[in-house]
Design a protein around this nucleic acid. Structure first.
Lengths: 278, 278
DNA sequence: CGTCACCAGTGGTCTATGCCACCTTCTGCG
DNA sequence: CGCAGAAGGTGGCATAGACCACTGGTGACG
């Protein structure tokens, strides 16, 4: 035993709480004692200690490095509630973005993608997986599906520089017009974790987007996974109750503000934002 | 052994893959064999099997019920990539929302909240924790901080019906004007998991919002946690390259569309959406 | 002096086992 | 017939021990 037994009947929680206090007394990047040492100090078995550490790794407080040890995470992430986020100014830009093509092939659409893009399941699709980098650090993985007929002669290099939508317009005469995009929270699987450099089962954002051109024809279906520890979405909501104008057709519901908490006119300008590292 | 040994050297992965196939052959809500049974079938120890199941529970494919068994999750959630989401029509409304006040007290602002609300750290704050329900199922937890001076005589019941912003205007003459809101992915801790009825460490969305009135005075600071398995954000993005109008001051970056992939004018209408259950 | 092989220490995985808490079902008593 | 209690099955937690894979340092050898 170390200090008081703590009220928790579950050892794992006691261990986790102890570790959280330990982490708070350390600086980011500091090493913490080895698993076996902690086991002895706390009087628990290694599986028990590991399961406690697992939580903190998933939460983003600790980092494990095989053969080296465990360390306090560099940037204090979402951790609990009440994150001590400092600034409130909206950081305007978002670092320098780059892309790295991981895969570039032609595949058959298949049932799901074919349905999305309104093409036959046997239609040829240019499939591109690319890593998005911010200041040379991996930020997201993007999986694009574009009907091959729309982009004849597309080269991998075309996907690593410039604006893809500009490229579509200038080279292929395709003018993107609108997109429907969904965002939901998820956790990383092994492949994603490896590619964007976070532990497995870390929080992440899953985007899914279907883009159409001015004629209403689907031109791209994208899904992408953004790391949750370095990416967040900041919106500026106009709630003004000045004039009940523009009742924008469909049900209006700001994420985070359930219906019944908003009645009047709303507008929203959304901007992405990279959380600056430590 | 069951079928082929699968190329993976890690037993956990083999077990997980086996379970994923098993789940795909089942209907939502179906029970699956007990842990001990699966151990015998697959020739692995129970801790190994449990750790494989843990992944699938975190991912949202399986549900455990103490003393009863394991079941295929009701709504097929984010699971892997490529979720087989069916419809593409934007479900307009979002079920019937209700609220249940969990806590209603007056506290001192403290450093963090005081800074947000531009009040002294010793200022009195009305603190409200409430559960948001959709069709009687818990959907989110909301933690509100409002300067007590703004809402004298506020009652818990006032927070369970009607629009809080309407209430502010009609009862206290406070006219909300705009808000800055951030959204990021997170995972649930024990308390959150218990309150919204999901396992610990499930994916969730963390909202943080600061609302100001027409005079620029902060009136509420809210953070809320939305369950990730039943909530997603759907946006309709206008990408039209018709006219490069309204260059809306700040850097414009749609979440999910990194800079360098967008040049022209954009608008966005965001709408929240409840994923219909099975 | 440089390079390489080895080794100790670390996290990663897996096993076998036990006990507890919870739920369902069946059984037997009132 | 009805209800309470026991029994068995389920997941939840924890243990002790073993082996593997990776890292970094150290020492031996060229």
């Amino acid at each position: 035993m170390v200090s008081e037994p703590s009220r928790s009947a579950v050892k794992r929680e006691r261990v986790r709480d102890y570790l959280m206090e330990l982490v708070e007394s350390c600086a980011p990047g500091d090493p913490i004692p080895s698993e076996r040492t902690l086991c002895e100090q706390l009087g628990v078995s290694r599986p028990t200690l590991r399961s406690a550490v697992d939580e903190l790794v998933t939460t983003g407080l600790l980092v494990r490095e095989h053969g080296r040890g465990m360390f306090v995470a560099r940037a204090k992430i979402t951790q609990e509630l009440a994150p001590a986020r400092d600034a409130y100014r909206l950081p305007q830009a978002s670092g320098s973005w780059a892309s790295k093509v991981l895969e570039f092939t032609t595949v058959q659409a298949g049932a799901r993608v074919g349905r999305r893009l309104h093409v036959s399941p046997a239609a040829e699709i240019t499939y591109i997986a690319r890593l998005r980098l911010v200041d040379d650090e991996p930020m997201a993985i993007e999986y694009l599906h574009v009907p091959a007929a729309l982009v004849p002669g597309l080269q991998p290099g075309d996907m690593e520089s410039g604006d893809f939508y500009d490229f579509l317009r200038e080279r292929h005469g395709v003018r993107v017009h609108e997109a429907v995009q969904s965002i939901e929270p998820t956790v990383t699987n092994e492949e994603e974790a490896r590619l964007i450099g976070v532990p497995v089962l870390s929080p992440a954002l899953l985007f899914e987007r279907l883009t159409k051109d001015t004629t209403g024809r689907p031109v791209e279906y994208v899904h992408s996974v953004y790391r949750g520890d370095r990416y967040r979405i900041v919106s500026r909501l106009a709630l003004g109750d000045t004039a009940p104008a523009t009742p924008l057709s469909a049900a209006q519901h700001h994420p985070g503000i359930p219906p019944g908490d908003l009645a009047s006119r709303r507008e929203v300008m959304t901007t992405g934002d990279v959380q600056p590292g430590s």
